[in-house]
């Protein structure tokens, strides 16, 4: 199997990694603290997409047991969905804490620009 085909059958994973990298780029490269928090959240979204994609099998139904069973007899893996739920809750907690610190920082320094904050320190 050639490289292009190998990547094509993993399109969802590629999208997840791309989201992760976009988030990483914003987190590292952007000077604004709010944008950094957004970058962190985009990274988390990439991880969630990756995990949920692992759980999918072709023609599988959502993991809710219907009386007759799934049409294809196959359900998506519910374990990764449960883990993503945990991940979302952690993401919300860290985002809330980071944003509250950011608000506090703005109230004392009047800026969210990392370069300016570094100059303030001197």
């Amino acid at each position: 199997m050639g490289m292009p085909l190998a990547l094509f059958v993993r399109l969802n994973y590629m999208a997840a990694i791309t989201l992760f990298l976009i988030g990483l780029h914003v987190l590292l490269g952007h000077p604004n603290l709010i944008k950094k928090v957004m970058g962190m959240n985009i990274m988390e979204t990439g991880v969630f997409l990756f995990l949920v994609s692992i759980g999918y099998a072709r023609h599988s139904a959502a993991p809710i047991m219907s009386p007759g069973g799934a049409e294809s007899g196959l359900y998506a893996n519910p374990l990764v969905s449960a883990i993503v739920l945990t991940g979302i809750v952690i993401a919300v907690s860290t985002t809330a804490y980071t944003l509250s610190l950011t608000i506090k920082l703005y109230e004392h320094c009047g800026t969210l620009d990392v370069n300016r904050l570094e100059r303030l320190r001197r």
């Binding site: 993993r10 994973y13 590629m14 999918y56």
Partner: peptide, 16 residues
């Protein structure tokens, strides 16, 4: 990440 991805099980594989 992309190099690792090329070795991963394909998306939607029923016997993953």
């Amino acid at each position: 990440l992309f190099a690792t991805l090329a070795e991963a099980p394909p998306f939607g594989w029923q016997e993953a």
